[in-house]
């Protein structure tokens, strides 16, 4: 035996991004844009609703972004991004034709198969609609496979509402109960005013057959979870998606740990029963 070993490890693995082309940019609000991408090798991203990708702007860096589109809708994919950091601001400066790097999709998405046949109560706060939209689209595309569909959406003010065209479509559908509220109204607003928990008053929820899917800022979880528990939902049928600083996406870098759990691998989607006793989770 020779103590020298020839390198046999395949290095072409977890940190090398695939290239994707930016096809379209749509302004959503003053802070958010919707980007449509296609992988340059022509393959679909293959994401499950609720999964995320690591997006590279070469020379600036990489950031975890949840996928906003459903795999039921073609080979392109959409990311709705708020300009808040180095990578996201650089993305906002990009025009169609630009190239980015994509790693992933990563993590565990929403358990669509387990949800089939049940009523679905979606609760989205602010940017929480971005990952939730991938699941809403999937459910609406297989509408006959699900029971009653309720979508509750809240933002700080009307100017922060995302996907306005789609919101109008959901409102117009007979097979979707869509309700929206804003914390603070402006002069054009005719709808509900108040935090999202105000939409739960008198909301019909059948605790025997409903799955609640809640995505929003950290402060929202505690209050909304209390509301759905109050409707009698068991903890195992309350789903949330956690935001953490998922730097590598593959369970190595340590930034997204909660206790022994790596959010990038076990999450970002969890049931409330999984998180209830996990200190520092919510």
């Amino acid at each position: 035996m020779d103590a020298r070993l020839l390198p046999t490890v395949d290095l072409d693995t977890i940190f090398r991004p695939r290239l994707a082309q930016l096809l379209n940019v749509e302004e959503m609000t003053a802070k958010e844009k919707l980007f449509t991408f296609q992988l340059k090798d022509g393959t679909p991203l293959g994401q499950d609703p609720g999964q995320f990708v690591e997006v590279s702007v070469f020379g600036i860096g990489e950031a975890p972004i949840s996928v906003s589109s459903s795999p039921t809708r073609g080979d392109t994919f959409e990311l709705c991004v708020r300009a808040v950091g180095n990578v996201t601001n650089a993305l906002h400066r990009m025009a169609p034709g630009a190239t980015v790097g994509i790693r992933g999709p990563f993590g565990q998405g929403f358990p669509v198969e387990e949800m089939r046949g049940r009523n679905v109560l979606f609760v989205a706060g602010g940017l929480g609609l971005v990952p939730l939209r991938s699941l809403i689209h999937a459910v609406l595309d297989m509408r006959q496979d699900f029971g009653a569909v309720t979508i509750l959406y809240g933002t700080k003010n009307p100017s922060e509402l995302l996907f306005r065209n789609e919101l109008a479509q959901w409102e117009a559908r007979d097979d979707v109960d869509y309700q929206v509220t804003v914390d603070v109204a402006d002069e054009s607003w005719r709808g509900n005013v108040g935090v999202i928990t105000t939409l739960f008053r008198g909301l019909p929820v059948d605790p025997r057959n409903t799955v609640a899917v809640i995505v929003g800022p950290p402060v929202m979880y505690r209050f909304v979870i209390r509301e759905v528990l109050g409707k009698g939902l068991p903890m195992g049928r309350i789903l949330v998606s956690l935001e953490r600083r998922m730097k590598c996406g593959v369970g190595k870098c340590g930034h997204c740990q909660i206790n022994g759990v790596y959010v990038c691998q076990k999450g970002p989607v969890f049931t409330y029963s999984e998180l209830r006793n996990l200190q520092e989770a919510i």
């Binding site: 940190f15 590279s56 070469f58 020379g59 860096g61 590598c248 190595k252 870098c253 930034h255």
Partner: peptide, 22 residues
């Protein structure tokens, strides 16, 4: 073992994606 990852552009055409101790 926790690490951070940053892009470092040596010039407009050569970029290194660096991982560093965190």
């Amino acid at each position: 073992y926790c690490f951070d990852v940053r892009d470092y552009a040596e010039n407009s055409s050569e970029i290194k994606r660096l991982r560093c101790w965190d």
